[in-house]
Amino acid sequence: MAHPWIHLIPGYTLEELMENLHKRGVEDLNEVKAAYMEADGHISVIIKKASD
């Protein structure tokens, strides 16, 4: 399933993104509400709450 926010992270493959998310304890893209590339190149991740 395509996630609408993935295209907002230029320069990352899906594999690189998943590796980055796994380091944060995320096992499934469905756990992620949004992800943003910061000006310094790091990715910030917002995890879904149970109520989302």
Rank of each mutant, 00 (worst) to 15 (best):
I6Q: 09
S44C: 05
V45A: 06
E16N: 03
H7Y: 04
K33Y: 15
A39F: 12
G11R: 02
L14R: 08
D40C: 10
E27V: 10
I43P: 09
L8G: 11
E38G: 02
I9H: 02
E19G: 06
D52I: 15
V32M: 03
S51P: 02
W5V: 01
E27M: 14
I6E: 10
P10R: 10
T13H: 01
K33E: 15
S51V: 04
L29F: 10
T13S: 13
K49W: 11
E31N: 10
V32F: 02
M1N: 14
D40H: 13
K23C: 05
A50I: 13
P10T: 04
V26F: 09
A2Q: 14
H42E: 14
D52V: 11
A39T: 11
A35H: 02
I6M: 13
K49D: 15
K48S: 15
G25W: 02
I46E: 13
D28I: 00
K49V: 13
H7R: 14
M37I: 15
G11N: 01
I9Y: 07
K48A: 15
P10S: 08
H7F: 07
Y36A: 08
K33R: 12
A50Y: 07
Y36H: 09
G41V: 04
M37Q: 13
S51A: 08
I47V: 12
V26K: 01
I47S: 11
G25F: 04
I9W: 03
V45D: 01
Y12T: 03
V32Y: 09
L17I: 00
N20R: 05
I47Q: 13
A2K: 14
E38I: 00
L14H: 05
V32L: 05
K23P: 01
N30C: 03
S44V: 05
I46M: 11
K48P: 02
D28E: 13
I9M: 07
R24I: 04
L21E: 00
E31G: 06
E38Q: 12
L29T: 10
I43A: 06
P10W: 01
G25K: 00
A2E: 13
D40K: 07
R24N: 09
P4I: 04
P4T: 05
Y36M: 10
G41Q: 07
D28N: 08
V26W: 03
R24F: 03
H7P: 12
A2P: 13
R24D: 07
G11K: 00
L8F: 06
D28R: 06
R24H: 07
I43Y: 07
